[in-house]
Design a protein around this nucleic acid. Structure first.
Lengths: 339, 339
DNA sequence: TTGTAAGCGTTATCAC
DNA sequence: GTGATAACGCTTACAA
């Protein structure tokens, strides 16, 4: 009864009040001022649910995170999300995070989400090759923006870090420092980032004419535990690596722990590097050589693309963000050894 | 037009269809089955926005997280949240996470949130003493549940870990191992958890008749950087501590890094302990002695209390959760030294 | 057991 | 410029 009450209070009709409040031009300026003032005084606030039902717009952007994956807790990713949310907030949009569990059907959850009217668009993370979520979104013509490129993407729907380049650089760095037995603990194969990272690694190895022992190329979840298991495996090989590249810094932490358990001194007996420049990486012992990128720019980019879609804005956005290596102690020895 | 369409399709009225769909008893079972089947076939899905407007209920529970604090990324806390969300999901409620930024007015953001109709209740975290958010929630009689106790709380509105006990135990442990110069890096004073933790620490010290150097009691944000700064400060004192207790494991990580930078060997020259059993704590070198609690139980407890409030459920919930010490290497020496 | 009709608080399309 | 009035898609008395 709220706008009605306000209208009654002012001796105006609901429609006039609505128009005044929503900045339409066909309203007498004095009327508008009166309405605005009264709304202020009376503490009137439009009911978003009603607005949503009437207008079909929610001014919410959603994201669905797997509750039990580390995505929900990865500090780097949370920062991306915070940056995205901040940009949205400045344009009077809200980011809504919701969760999905292992026991739920992904397609169903996404479908329910986009048909709920709760959000005007969704962010997709952990992009997979030929991602079924994206097929569905496309089919229903629902606005989406991905963090993570796939081969058939247009520039208006994704931002990504140049993972291939990052791991090309990282691998090349290790090769330069004398390594040839370089292992790579990659993320799950289904993720597009995994493909990109592996490709960068392979290319650098190939260009240096170093053959790769397939035992050194493993996939696992982005967490310490999986990395530990994988590291134990490869470090017990007779022909074991002298360097381990990890798909992110949590894996690096696990790899380092595994190496130390086995009696290796990381940074001296073996080099380890990660990706993402997670918060812990500069504080651990040894601190972790990693790859960083402009987190805020990525987050903002996602939101800009989203607003381009849902509001017809024309923000320019950079799809690809370069990554740069941050040198720390976990592969320190090989630097010092150099010259 | 959807329920209308479905009704027309079935030759029934909207109300009957609605009742059938929503499990009311005054519906012929055969009719209900027909409706359910038709809904399935036709792919009918009720529009949540319309439902919300009509019923005044959203089946959403909200939480507002400070986007730039570590709360958003603390792995332990995210797990609590995931557990809470999972329990809610099983009762057909959704958890909605949204963000607040430094430049926003907290009262306003909370007010907008609870009056938006988006959520039926809110979770409050980082509870502060005499928290203004809670005053407002109370005033508007909006359902809330806190993670973190304050002195005037009733049992129906909070769950908490027994922080006082945890830090009493932790401090006592260090005293038993011969420490008397025990520093405590606490979280910001305004948080109720900080008070509780400090109280436990003080009590243990007091009971052991150990006087406390006020320089050893510092407050800072729950992150590595603040902890590092504080640690540097206290370790440069002439009368410096032999043990540092930290309000959480990120602080412990920072404290350890600072000690090592200053040339101390953590676990041998100095003991460090944290709180929360964060993911990294078992993988760092040295691994971190910490305090753990039943994360899932806490999360579930929050959701149970919430459903008691918004749905009139009668779940029994345990308000206080005990914490237990997890012994690792960061204060290892003093254990071995014992017997 | 089912149908009718009045909301829920807005926006939007008309006339005026 | 302003005001009726009909949507939006559903719930819920109340009547039948």
């Amino acid at each position: 009864m709220s706008i009605k009450k306000l209208a009654a209070h002012l001796g105006l009709s609901k429609s006039t009040v609505s128009r005044a409040l929503n900045g339409y031009t066909d309203v007498n300026e004095q009327t508008r001022e009166k309405v605005l003032k009264a709304a202020q005084d009376i503490g009137y606030k439009a009911n978003p649910t009603a607005k949503r039902l009437a207008s079909g717009k929610s001014r919410n952007i959603g994201i669905i995170l797997p509750a039990h994956s580390r995505m929900f807790v990865s500090s780097a990713f949370s920062k991306v999300l915070a940056a995205a949310a901040e940009f949205l907030a400045k344009h009077d949009y809200q980011l809504i995070v919701t969760t999905i569990f292992d026991w739920q059907d992904e397609q169903q959850v996404y479908f329910d989400f986009i048909t709920s009217g709760l959000v005007d668009g969704v962010f997709i993370v952990r992009t997979r090759h030929l991602d079924p979520r994206i097929s569905m979104l496309k089919k229903h013509q629902f606005p989406y923006v991905c963090f993570g490129f796939d081969t058939d993407f247009k520039n208006d729907c994704f931002v990504d870090v140049d993972n291939a380049q990052a791991f090309y650089d990282l691998t090349q760095r290790q090769i330069k420092h004398g390594h040839s037995r370089i292992a790579f603990l990659d993320a799950p194969n289904e993720l597009t980032v995994s493909q990109a990272r592996k490709q960068g690694y392979l290319q650098a190895m190939h260009e240096a004419h170093i053959s790769i022992d397939p035992h050194w190329l493993l996939n696992g979840e982005l967490n310490e535990h999986d990395a530990m298991k994988m590291t134990q495996k490869i470090m017990l090989l007779i022909h074991r690596p002298t360097c381990i590249l990890c798909a992110d810094d949590t894996m690096a932490l696990g790899a380092i722990a595994a190496c130390e358990t086995l009696g290796y001194q990381v940074g001296i007996d073996i080099a380890v590097a990660g990706y993402g420049d997670y918060e812990h990486s500069r504080y651990t012992n040894p601190s972790i050589t990693t790859v960083q990128y402009d987190i805020d720019a990525v987050g903002e980019g996602m939101s800009k693309l989203m607003l381009n879609k849902v509001e017809g804005k024309q923000f320019e956005v950079k799809n690809w963000h370069e990554a740069t290596i941050v040198i720390r102690q976990s592969d320190d020895y090989f630097i010092t050894n150099e010259t």
